[in-house]
Structures are given as C-alpha cells and as structure tokens.
Design a protein around this nucleic acid. Structure first.
Lengths: 126, 126
DNA sequence: GCTTGTGCTGGAGTGCACTCCAGCACCTAT
DNA sequence: ATAGGTGCTGGAGTGCACTCCAGCACAAGC
C-alpha cells in the first residue's frame, strides 16, 4: 500500500506518517522498485492503536518506547504489559476528572439558563 | 494574597500565574504599596476552575475567550453557556474514547498475562 | 546597614508534536 | 516526449503552553 493510501485510511497526513517512521513509531516499510514505501496491511491496525493511545493522552515518548519494545518481540511482553497498566490507571484518573467536570458543567449550564431566564423576564416585564 | 501564596495553593508556578495574567486568563490583581500583586481570595476558585477546564482538554484560546466573557459581566451569560455546552460534548466524546481504550487495555493486559504465563511454563517444563 | 528573600519587567528559550518546503526522481497518460 | 501527479530526502518552520533569565527594586531580620 502506498503512503497516500495509508494517509487516507488512517487520517494521518503523509508527513506525519514519515515523521512517525523517523521517530520509531512505525517500522520502516519495504520499498517498491522506485524506492517508494510499500506498507503492509497490518500497519493500519497498529496506527489505529497508536491513535487510541494518543487520544487517551499517552505521550509521544511513551508511544515510541512501546513501539520499540513491540518490535523487539515476545521477550518484552512483561514490560509492555506494565506500560499498558500504567496507562490504564492514568486513564482512570482522566475519567474521574471528566466525570467531576461534567457534573460541574451541568450545574453551571443550569445556573446560566436560570440567569438567562431571569434576564429575559426582566426585559419582558417592563 | 501574594503571588507565592497563590502558587502554593493552586500548584501553578509563579511564572505561570504572571503568564496567565498576561494572556488574559486572570484579571490583573491590585498592587500593594511596593507594586507587588495582591490577589483576592476569589482568584483561587477561578484558578481551580481553569485547571479543571485544562485537565479536560479545553484549549488555551478558549479558556481566554471564556475568561474575557466572564470579565464582561452578565450580558455574556448566553455565550458562556454555549461554550460550556460545547465543551461538555467534547468531554463526552473523550469519555467514550477512554471507555473504549480502557476496555482494549484490559483485553491486551489479559492477553499479555497469558503470554507471560505460557513463557514461564515453557522454561519451567524443560 | 547589609545580606537574604521575594517580587517586578521584558524578552528569550524550551519541549512537544507535528507541518511545510526546496529540489529532485520516477511513473502515467496523452 | 512532455506535462502532471506522486513520492523521496534533509532540514527549516509553526503553534502551543509554558519556563527561564538578567537586571533591578523593595522588604525584613540580624
């Protein structure tokens, strides 16, 4: 698969794909006769996983570390597991922050609606 | 309250407090006789609210916009409410991403545990 | 009255995660 | 055979959110 196809299917830009390769997030794919990258299908799943780690706040440096461990094979499974567990608890903290702030937003929005209601009445009453 | 006190109570650095003032996130506090910032107590609650918006992914530019609206008074309540509602739905999308990825982490961690178990047995069995 | 601590300003520097560009090669359709 | 599209490399530039620093003023304790 050519780089433009991968970009289209993953939503990453072509530049980002090359950048991810440069920093070690994606393994350098084989090249075709003309020296162009020829990605295997499996890269799509890996990129989607990276996107999930990204969306849930894992830092680039840690994603790179995980990618490097993954490339080293089965011997690194315990360390990868520890990384995922660490990220898991980080995500749980985020969930809690979100829940608390969501509740706060609801209270504030209700308060603001109330204020708007009163302001509307004020101008209607005169 | 002096800047170092505010820093200690909020966890922000002194530089960050001045930076927040510069970009309009915090209103310039009055100064004491020696020209030092003298923050009112209320700033603590506001900073904690900012921290919550921060922790749940609201961008600086939007926090600044909200702060400016807030400083303008009651007339901006409808717009502030719309901002909070927009942030609310952004947070809900984040929650969903977290839930999905949390479930994925659990599956992967279980898988890795399983692999570790088998590897251990392999070396034990021989 | 001098040292230490705290604060001030304006501006430069940092780290992260991309994003863009020049200058070139190759492939494809007309 | 030539024009347009796609891809390549190495390196520079960007935007965000701070963070640090020099050089100075004021204050408080010994």
């Amino acid at each position: 698969m050519r780089i433009s196809q991968v970009a289209a299917k993953t939503g990453l830009s072509i530049d980002t794909l090359r950048f991810y390769e440069k920093i070690g997030l994606i393994e350098p794919p084989p090249r075709d006769g003309a020296g162009r990258r020829d990605y295997p299908e499996e890269v799509l799943g890996w990129i989607r996983f990276l996107a999930q780690l990204n969306a849930t706040g894992m830092k680039q440096a840690d994603r790179v570390r995980y990618a490097r461990l993954r490339a080293e094979g089965a011997a690194t499974v315990p360390e990868r597991r520890r990384m995922l567990e660490a990220h898991r608890s980080h995500m749980q903290a985020q969930m809690q922050a979100l829940e608390e702030t969501l509740a706060l937003m609801d209270r504030k929005v209700a308060l603001y609606r109330d204020m708007e209601h009163k302001l509307t009445q004020e101008s209607t009453d005169v």
